[in-house]
Amino acid sequence: MRRFAATMLGTILTVTACVTTSAPLEVPALPPIDDAALSSLLESGDPIVLNVWASWCIPCRSEAPLLSAAYEAFGDRVSFIGVDIEDTQEDARQFISEHGLEFDNYFDRAGTVRANLGGVGVPITYFFAPGGELVYRHNGVIDERTLSLQIDEILNR
């Protein structure tokens, strides 16, 4: 068992040592968001995926690549919005740069968006049909199946 574990660990260390990261994005300061701005976004007429995250949140880091992939796949038909809560501008910008998040992100230090939309903790992902109707709220790390299914739901309502 020890030999097996040592072999596996050695393989993992070798592979991970070879990992290269892409060039960091230049991220401007995140604009603040309040109730009026949120209402305006939700009434835009597009289906919306709104993800509440924070740079200190480990599960948020875990789901960031999935959201980025979803934006690449559906970004032309669905509006993706990120809301960084209870965080600092510097950490938030570093998080966006590290994960290459290309959709619009807003800064909400007090967490008012989450308080208004409902939900506990981070991450939370909200799915809005065109017109602003909340179709589904997912607490915690979202998986590919749930994300794809709910995007299909808001695209066809």
Partner: peptide, 21 residues
């Protein structure tokens, strides 16, 4: 994690987040 650009050495806690993929 490696395929999505997250290094398990710098972010070891992410390994247990199975739901992440």
């Amino acid at each position: 994690m490696l395929l999505t650009g997250t290094n398990p050495l710098t972010h070891p806690a992410d390994i247990i987040l199975i739901r992440g993929g």
